[in-house]
Design a protein around this nucleic acid. Sequence first.
DNA 1: GAGTACGAAATCGTATACGAAAACTATGGC
DNA 2: GCCATAGTTTTCGTATACGATTTCGTACTC
Lengths: 221, 221
Amino acid sequence: MTDIAVESKTGSKSEQAYAAVKARIVEGTYTPGYRLVLAKIAEDLGVSVVPVREAIRRLEAEGLVKFERNVGATVSGIDPTEYLYTMQTLSIVEGAATALSAPLIDPEAIARARAVNEEMRDCLEHFDPVRFTALNQDFHSVLFEHCPNPHILDLVHRGWNRLASLRASTFRFIPGRARESVEEHEALLQLIEAGEDADTIEKAARRHRTATLDAYLAQAK
Amino acid sequence: MTDIAVESKTGSKSEQAYAAVKARIVEGTYTPGYRLVLAKIAEDLGVSVVPVREAIRRLEAEGLVKFERNVGATVSGIDPTEYLYTMQTLSIVEGAATALSAPLIDPEAIARARAVNEEMRDCLEHFDPVRFTALNQDFHSVLFEHCPNPHILDLVHRGWNRLASLRASTFRFIPGRARESVEEHEALLQLIEAGEDADTIEKAARRHRTATLDAYLAQAK
DNA sequence: GAGTACGAAATCGTATACGAAAACTATGGC
DNA sequence: GCCATAGTTTTCGTATACGATTTCGTACTC
């Protein structure tokens, strides 16, 4: 169950480099502040520096790394301010994505989402934060399956990526909040089933995210 | 008042290439569908292909160009669907940006915004769509001056860029909508002055954008 | 002992070069 | 006359190479 084997996917070397470096950031091999030396990465991956450079700049555009001219790239830091920005933005785009998707979610998808949520509940019993986090993403992914606006969905995914890079290094699992989260998921499903109006659903989805932010802030203080 | 002279800004060639190509897209020299051949652009700008490639990929990440593996880059198209996605996303992020900024806008900024809006009104009399559009962006920029979340502001700017590339090619000025727009600006300023709650302001800002979309759709049909 | 100046090493930025893939063109078969 | 196919041309993708810039270490001065 090592991380290798993701390496050789698409033919493009720059794509490979992108995927490889991104994976290392998300899984925590490269922690925030880690210095990304082009030549070194290139050697590790068995490619030249050009595609690596391209990959790094792409990651920069996504906010996962910070690039400084003539100095180099480092994995993006995780100061609380940045976390706040990201969570706030996510609450907005997730809220919109949920509201837009809601009318298009069929009962079968609801059932699947509910099943995922029940699995999350199990994770609470057996204390499995890693799996819980993955399932949490699955849950929302099911809701967004038929999101009518791909741009918004893309913004959601970007936010998730940023959080992933933070999580690997400093994430602290807050059991109380996790339990709440499961309940909010169920409540959200019921709103969707009931065919509530977009505004109600959007607000609920937003609060679901901001509540996590609040829990973090309360604990950090 | 030609467009050249933007060329030699930052020392970085890839930055220059980025700015140059972006400018040509936004101003309409490169229209949607235009084939961006790396070698040709490199020659035009007097640099090698490597920085040009980097610039193009950056523009791809922003949605201004479309890149196909082993085929090349073309200026992004402007089909109505894409326009809809962009406008819808903009309505959401602008709405959020406006609501978040509102409590931080001081009377002096309000006055400036109002002055810009009055200039827009003048543009209606003298029929100056180009200036009107520029001022429209200025108006919202004033409101967003103290936006507490730079991520959201960044999303707003990305949306504006995409629209700019569309506008140069197929934008059709709708006088009736422009007049409405000026009135909505004034109404928005009054809501802000009155210290209305975030939700009210957010909805107003959203509607301001979606109304333009609706006007476009009504006309296109 | 602290700070500055200089030189060496590391690293980035970009030009050039070449192999690979796709697009185009022309030729031949049906 | 039209489609398939082979050859040519264009254009991309990446390796290598080298100059430019920054950073780090050392020695020197105050």
